[in-house]
Write a protein that binds this DNA or RNA. Structure first.
Lengths: 228, 228
DNA sequence: GACATGCCTGGAACGATGTTCCAATGAATT
DNA sequence: AATTCATTGGAACATCGTTCCAGGCATGTC
């Protein structure tokens, strides 16, 4: 652990600046995940990027699950540090959800990880903050849990959806073509049997996900307001 | 060189009764998934259960993703065949969501698969049916997409959550202990900083997931009703 | 200065997995 | 009877997460 303290040396490329540390490993992992996708994060690729061996990484990180967990936590807590407070409860709930949404859109693998292991520390933070805002909104104690639960589930669902979309984006890297392919697969079904799918397909093709996310969120907030 | 196609089998004469088929393979896969969890489904275990080799399976199924996809589809379409229609729209939306929820609770791996690959054919079915009900509910065309989207996202979030809970249940196979462990991890945080988490922790410990799911769903339905 | 200690490193090795390849089988057709 | 070809079973391959271990390099002790 004394190895991590760098102020001991005033300056110097002479000392190996590539000293391994948990943070450097996590940072490298995030870089790989962002640049090449989830499948590209292997301990070999990670060791290669850090110019070391797999064993060295295992000294700082217990296993791959923990690595992904810490990476997720790093991104999410960073995102949540920036949200503004003080406004009215509904706006705060929107801001909180949006910060998570934006983080997932910027780092889709966070969505995958969140869907797989929902109770990360950052998610507990979301739980706590949203509960406070729902209470300020006037939700009774009895239904507070249900409101927060719906809020979090909606967030998780969006996370999964966004991550899945990004996965397909990686496979065939231009977005309109992918959307068109999905719509085509939908519309291949008999239009008579699936009228709504056909009608909504056009909307899917042109829809703004961020706006749709907010609209869906407002649905929940509208339902919560009556303090039922 | 041979690839899996869904083509016709030569009609009249039947093969050995233990002949491999896509359905038999999928059925065996579902059995393994239900009995031993997602991690236990390997092509070797599958081949072993079917008393054959991995290569024989690959003749009927392109790869593991497709196998999981078909298994998910099998369970979901089976679940959706049983829902009753004809009642009022809100009740129909609850019934539809509940059938998916129950299927996921009975086969948690379906939740994992749904979070990873949301647009299974059965999910398009959910999309279609729920859109029809939302329209009967009086939702305007403009907000129909947002309502359905919120509905589906909530469903996906619940799927991920339920699947994750089941995964932990597998690890330490008695449920109260797992819940207690989660709550303990929550409450280890400073109570002063996380008052709501502490208050809600008790509710988590005793809550009925099915009821909570329905309550959250009603939140969305309540928000949708004003035809905003 | 020489030695011992313990954190840290690098890479070889292990077991398991998804997938491919191919020789063998046997029913259907000629 | 010969041939064809869908189907089978399992060996082989590449890759993954993980473990193991033989060293380095800094520090503390004589």
């Amino acid at each position: 652990m004394s190895r991590c303290v760098m102020e001991q040396r005033p300056k110097g490329p002479e000392r190996r600046e590539d000293a391994l540390s948990r943070e450097r490993i996590v940072a490298a992992a995030i870089e790989i995940l962002d640049a090449e996708g989830e499948r590209a994060l292997t301990f070999r690729a990670l060791a290669n990027r850090l110019s070391t061996g797999s064993g060295a990484i295992y000294w700082h990180v217990p296993d791959k699950d923990a690595l992904l967990s810490v990476a997720t936590e790093t991104v999410l807590s960073g995102a949540m540090a920036e949200i503004a407070g003080g406004s009215d409860p509904a706006a705060a709930l929107r801001a909180l959800a949006l910060s998570v949404f934006d983080a997932i859109e910027a780092h889709p693998w966070v969505g995958t990880q969140l869907a797989r292991e929902p109770w990360q520390p950052a998610m507990v933070e979301v739980f706590e903050r949203s509960a406070a805002q729902f209470e300020r909104l006037g939700v009774s104690r009895g239904s507070l849990f249900h409101c927060v639960s719906a809020y979090v589930h909606y967030l998780l669902g969006t996370a999964a959806q966004t991550a899945a979309a990004a996965r397909h984006k990686f496979a065939a890297s231009d977005r309109p073509a992918v959307l068109a392919a999905i719509v085509e697969r939908w519309t291949r079904r008999d239009p008579a049997q699936y009228p709504f799918v056909h009608r909504l397909a056009e909307q899917v093709r042109t829809h703004d996900e961020r706006e749709a996310f907010l609209a869906g969120l407002d649905l929940i907030l509208a339902g919560a307001k009556p303090t039922r």
